[in-house]
Design a binder for these strands. Structure first.
Length: 192
DNA sequence: GCCTATCGTGATG
DNA sequence: CATCACGATAGGC
């Protein structure tokens, strides 16, 4: 499983943590991932599921689960392969047409939302430094704060935090700097 | 390489 | 509330 190139996303701010999160583990091109989806009331449609969490399993499923559980301690995590897989197929299927933007439910401060929205503006393969991003947001001196917010992104790939690199090439990543490089290399290659 | 300015967050009392 | 420590930084030396 992988995502369509230039997939469009729709960010839906949450006012409070969802009561329940359905989750499953998915096999992807770059390894196993944990995905959580939630019903949200903001969109008026019958299939109103939004993606809430998309984490790489870099150590073990237990570790990943534990991390997500801690972050979403107010929500009940419910193993639900069927529901989650349904959402995944709907938006990530190879043969699906991605006419619809992928709904992503996010919970964060105003500042964090603005950082994540800025991330969503980056195109596939495009990179940007932390300071450039800060400047783009009109907060040129809030570089460290921007980095903090970038690091707290819960939805890997779709909210492309891997496209932010440091000015000297150090370039850290929550799930490993090497994975970040792989992702960027892949985005720049022609076989996306 | 080390030093420091910088600023939003979360923890703590 | 007030304070504090902490970064996926950057720039000066």
């Amino acid at each position: 499983m992988w995502f369509a190139r230039d997939a469009r996303i729709q960010l839906i701010p949450l006012e409070s943590p969802p009561k329940t999160l359905c989750f499953t583990f998915l096999a992807t091109k770059f390894g196993q991932m944990m995905m959580c989806v939630t019903k949200h009331a903001t969109v008026d449609s019958k299939d109103n599921f939004a993606i809430c969490v998309l984490h790489f399993v870099d150590k073990s499923v237990e570790k990943t689960y534990e991390e997500v559980r801690k972050r979403w301690s107010k929500s009940e995590l419910q193993k639900d392969d069927a529901t989650t897989q349904l959402v995944a197929n709907k938006f990530f299927g190879n043969d699906k047409e991605n006419s619809k933007a992928i709904p992503i439910a996010i919970l964060g401060t105003e500042f964090q939302l603005s950082v994540w929205r800025a991330l969503a503006d980056l195109t596939t393969g495009e990179t940007c430094t932390y300071s450039q991003l800060a400047e783009r947001m009109g907060r040129p001196s809030a570089i460290r704060a921007v980095a903090n917010a970038v690091a707290k992104n819960e939805v890997a790939i779709l909210i492309p935090c891997h496209r932010i690199v440091s000015q000297n090439g150090a370039s850290k990543y929550h799930w490993g700097a090497d994975l970040k490089q792989q992702l960027l290399a892949f985005e720049k290659s022609s076989n996306y």
